[in-house]
Simulated scan of single mutants.
Amino acid sequence: MSRTTKNGLIPRVPAALLLAAGTLLAGSGVAIAEPAVPPALAGLLDTASSAGSVAPVADAPRLATVDNFRDVAGTGAGYATPRGTVHKGVFYRSNAIVPNDADLATLSAVGLTTAYDLRGPDEIAQKADRLPAGVAYVNIPILAGNVNELVARIHSPEDARQEMRKMNRDFVTGEVERAGFAQLLTSLAETDGAQVFHCTAGKDRTGWTSYLLLTIAGVDAQTIMDDYLLTNEYTAESMAKTLAYLRQTQGDAVAENFGPLVGVEASYLQAGIDQLTADFGAVDNYLTTGLGLSTGTIGALKAKLVG
């Protein structure tokens, strides 16, 4: 960063903390305590008991060391669509999958077949995935641009918010990003069994992927936005520890300026949605024209989600 402090020193924000605007804990060694059940989900946890005689798929387990691991379909009966509820146990989303032994055992019981890592090499070097035995690992980097340049542009909280909005717009306009999402969605459609996709914090690249899947399924816009914002509840404790770490090591000003990178705000996802609408008119056109997906691939995804 080019900005100096009162004593003339240039505050140094470790690049590993800022990779992809979602890696502020990468390599920090900050312990993550087990998060509480998000209040927004409390009323949904017991709804499965009224779903009928067919045994429902269990909610995604809460993991202490992978705190943003969750089912794309939501909890309880799953998110509603005009064609029925979204199928649970098919697609999972997550932050970096670096579980402790207890969480690894819990994750093993989920029955995953494939994990898609959307991070770049520098992020992976900080936190390499630790997957259950037998789970295939696929790396699909989805991020263009230079992290150091991003850091240099942030001098205020609003600068950070602008960078997050730009990232989501790039998911629509960027060739590297579109190619990555096309590869990911095609793989999700063609691969059997339960699958998980993730980035570092499980909120930006992962959040956009979830937005696309839930839109394909027919989930309403408000529910999709509410799901996107659940990151702030699932990771509330780790976000607080990230900010505390930044204050301790970089000072209050840096923590304040970079704070908006840690969580999500509605305007971030909305920026991508608005760009998609401006460039393609509708998600279907983005999928076919922007990503080059076939109608067969989109149909396969829809069948997995609600078919």
Results as ranks from 00 to 15, higher is better:
Arg161Cys: 00
Leu214Ser: 08
Ala64Lys: 15
Ser53Gly: 04
Gly292Phe: 07
Val135Arg: 01
Gly43Leu: 07
Ala182Gln: 10
Asp159Phe: 02
Val306Arg: 10
Gly281Lys: 09
Arg3Val: 14
Thr173Asp: 05
Cys199Gly: 07
Val54Gln: 14
Val37Tyr: 08
Gly218Met: 09
Ala58Thr: 09
Leu212Met: 15
Arg178Gln: 12
Gly145Val: 03
Thr200Lys: 15
Ala236His: 14
Pro157Val: 07
Ala217Thr: 04
Asp170Ser: 14
Ala80Asp: 09
Ala33Gly: 14
Ile32Lys: 04
Leu212Cys: 11
Gly52Cys: 13
Leu229Asn: 04
Ile298Tyr: 12
Asp227Ile: 00
Glu34Ile: 00
Ala221Ser: 15
Asn95Val: 00
Phe91Thr: 05
Gly263Thr: 02
Thr277Pro: 04
Val151Ser: 11
Glu163His: 01
Glu149Val: 07
Leu229Val: 08
Gly290Ser: 03
Gly111Gln: 13
Leu9Met: 09
Arg62His: 05
Gly29Met: 06
Ala48Trp: 10
Ile140Gly: 12
Val13Lys: 05
Ile154Leu: 09
Gly299Trp: 00
Leu143Asn: 15
Tyr79Pro: 01
Ala73Asn: 11
Gly84Arg: 10
Val72Asp: 06
Ser210Cys: 15
Thr242Ile: 10
Leu287Met: 03
Leu45Cys: 04
Ala125Lys: 04
Leu243Val: 01
Pro132His: 11
Tyr268Arg: 02
Arg165Ser: 05
Ile10Asn: 12
Phe280Ser: 14
Gly111Trp: 10
Arg169Asn: 08
Leu118Ile: 07
